[in-house]
Amino acid sequence: MMMNNTLRNQCKLLPGSLVTGKWNKNQYKIIKELGCGANGIVYLVESGNRHYALKLSDNGTSIISEMNILKSFSKVQGSTLGPSFLEADDFMKTGKQLPFYVMEYIHGHDFLRFIDKKGSSWIGVLMLQLLTSLSALHSNGWVFGDLKPENLIVTSPAYKVRCVDVGGTTLIGRSVKEFTEFFDRGYWGLGSRKADPQYDLFAVAMIIINSAYSGRFQKKGEGYKQLNDLIKQKKELHPYRKMLDKALRGQYDSAIQMREDLVTVLSKQNHSRKKGPNQTATGQQQTVQPSTRQARRSQNQSKKKSGGFFETFLLVAIISMLYVLYIYEQLL
């Protein structure tokens, strides 16, 4: 989205400068800029030796809506999906009132960068986590709305997927107002923008598709057919094919249902991998060790097994041939 320059200028703060609240009088020291969105700039700040994220805006309306969402997030029991809310206040800068709110600072890598570094075997595992969180959110009557890799942060040392931008979060039954075309089912002609659990599940499917491609693509002609072709073209997406198709068509009743299918896909892959002792798909995601070599190349188990036999046979054949040559040489 475009951002006008006045916002940039007004909300621009240099590291070291202090933000003091007009109402609560709390003070925050700017450490650095974390990012800027359509309606404000997010800074990493320090207060009382603790780090927080502070969002400053010149547009009171949208930031207040976001604050309301964050507050209701905090009320969702056991949900660690979004950042927790600390306080909201106003900052007086050269006579102008700039509203801001302070939230938990979620530290980690963004989703795509994490997958790049740790390998694609993490995609499935992190999506399991995400689906669990989404299920909690949905049962509390909310839909996340603007799900995309950029809004997902993987924390460390315990690898946990969290969402940072809650601006798209919408009550079920209302219209989703903040979304990103590529992850929006309305854009692909596969449903409305009315918030329902299926809206988020569509986006989860698109995140999985997106992580197999380095870039994003625009809609050409019929959306469903195009997405199907894109799934077919990438071998690593084949194991997920059935699940992705159901999610794209909105056929899952709940995030839990989709999660179950994903568990099945992942455990199948584990069986086919002979030496993968640490791989579990039971939901204890943190204990899972990443394996650098992926076994997603083949579509089913039997194929994989015969591949293994062939490898063994080849190896034995080569070694015996070398041995025969060696003996032959010795004899001469």
């Binding site: 109402w23 009171g60 604050m67 309301n68 709110y101 219209s175």
Partner: peptide
């Protein structure tokens, strides 16, 4: 105006605005 209200109250007013927009 809305801006003169403390943030919490402003939040409540904003909920009404969002509701009407919907």
């Amino acid at each position: 105006t809305m801006e003169d209200l403390p943030p919490d109250k402003r939040g409540e007013v904003m909920e009404v605005v969002d509701e009407l927009g919907e």
